[in-house]
Amino acid sequence: MFFRRTVIGDRGYDSNRIRRSLVERNITGCIPSRKSRKSKPSYNWHLYKKRHLIENMFAKLKRLATCCDQIRLVRPAASPGTLVSIMNPLTSPPESG
């Protein structure tokens, strides 16, 4: 199976230098052009719209890491059950005993 290498970037990565570098490496760029750009290169709009899924995944990982750091600061010997109950709000916290 053949996979095409693609870079999905936001408008901040729209420069001739970056686009030239991608072409030299046979990488497809999915970067919308800045509003002030006179020549607007085409890009895959549907693929660009799926970019938010990747951003959401990193946001969730960052939130989880922050949550784990706070647990470590408050209760250094937190049990794995405590972490599961924080990650899944439908479960009740484990009984301490």
Rank of each mutant, 00 (worst) to 15 (best):
L61G: 02
P32A: 05
I18L: 11
C68H: 09
G9N: 06
S33T: 01
K40C: 01
S92T: 09
L83C: 06
F58E: 13
M87Y: 12
A59M: 00
P76E: 03
L61K: 03
L73M: 14
R25L: 14
D10H: 10
R63M: 05
L90E: 15
L83F: 13
I18D: 00
D69M: 12
R20M: 09
K35N: 13
S15M: 11
W45Q: 15
V84Q: 08
S79A: 12
S85W: 07
E55C: 04
T66S: 12
K50C: 05
S42Y: 00
S85N: 09
C30V: 14
S79H: 12
S96W: 10
N88Q: 12
I71W: 01
L53D: 11
S15L: 05
Y13E: 06
R20I: 01
T91V: 14
C68G: 02
F2K: 10
P32Y: 02
C67D: 07
I8G: 03
K50L: 14
S15I: 14
L73N: 14
F3K: 11
T82W: 14
S96D: 09
L22K: 05
I18V: 14
M57G: 03
P41K: 01
L83D: 06
R37N: 01
N88D: 15
I86D: 01
K38M: 06
I27F: 03
I86C: 10
S79E: 11
G12D: 13
N88K: 08
E24V: 04
Y43F: 15
R17V: 11
N88Y: 13
V74N: 13
S85A: 13
S85Y: 07
G97H: 03
S33Y: 08
S79N: 09
I27R: 01
D69N: 15
T91L: 12
R19N: 08
T82I: 12
R20Y: 08
W45S: 08
V23F: 07
L22R: 00
